[in-house]
């Protein structure tokens, strides 16, 4: 758990950091942040509760509790990470713990778009490459330098061609992952669309 949290802002092109490996398929957002921690009106204190139940079960042996991982910022996961509930509290909790990027075999759709919306790039690699990285992490520290411009990551031993949706990559590089203002730029088009949609008219009693 890092002392100072500053959310990402603006263009994101490089992320350098130590990797933390979390093994398991279909790790759902209930496990990332159990529902009882959703009783909050802001996200501020979620970092300390990330994986709370899994961590308690493993009594200090969970990757998020290991001393050697405490400064990690790049999470390495397996397939369908973040499935289940749409709670943005899950990536918010990871981010507040210190995670700045995630590399995995695959991600659940809603989790993935939540990560984009808060500035956490998610990259994919084939199963075999992920397992190699996770094995590497078992034995030694892995520091990765991620370059979003080239979708490339390197360490002293590894060179990785990361995959990321082109639209997501561009949004991080331009800063448009924080989408509200980009969307509002098209205010006239939004008004036009509102006026054109058939059901707005026959549901005028809504207002």
């Amino acid at each position: 758990m890092k002392s100072e949290f500053t959310p990402p802002i603006g263009k994101i092109s490089n992320i350098n950091g130590q990797c933390i490996s979390l093994i398991g398929n279909d790790i759902d957002t209930d496990r990332i942040i159990p529902a009882r921690f959703l009783k909050c009106v802001n996200f501020n204190s979620l970092g300390e509760s990330v994986f709370e139940d899994d961590r308690k079960t493993l009594k200090g042996r969970h990757p998020f509790d290991l001393e050697e991982n405490k400064n990690s910022s790049i999470l390495i996961v397996n397939s369908n990470f973040g499935c289940g509930s749409s709670r943005e509290h899950a990536p918010q909790a990871l981010m507040r713990w210190g995670i700045k990027a995630i590399i995995g075999e695959s991600f659940a759709d809603i989790f993935y778009s939540n990560c984009i919306a808060i500035g956490i790039p998610c990259f994919t690699l084939p199963k075999k490459s992920i397992e190699e990285i996770q094995n590497y992490c078992d034995n030694q520290f892995l520091f990765l330098e991620i370059d979003l411009k080239k979708s490339f990551a390197k360490s002293k031993d590894l060179n990785l061609n990361l995959e990321i949706k082109e639209s997501s990559r561009k949004m991080f590089l331009s800063g448009e992952w924080d989408a509200t203002s980009t969307l509002l730029d098209n205010e006239n088009l939004i008004e036009n669309k509102f006026n054109q949609l058939p059901y707005i008219k026959f549901n005028s009693h809504y207002s």
Binding site: H89, S113, T180
Partner: peptide, 12 residues
């Protein structure tokens, strides 16, 4: 959707 997207729908 997540909360940031809820924000976007509210705003836009």
């Amino acid at each position: 959707i997540g909360t940031s997207q809820v924000r976007d729908v509210l705003a836009t």
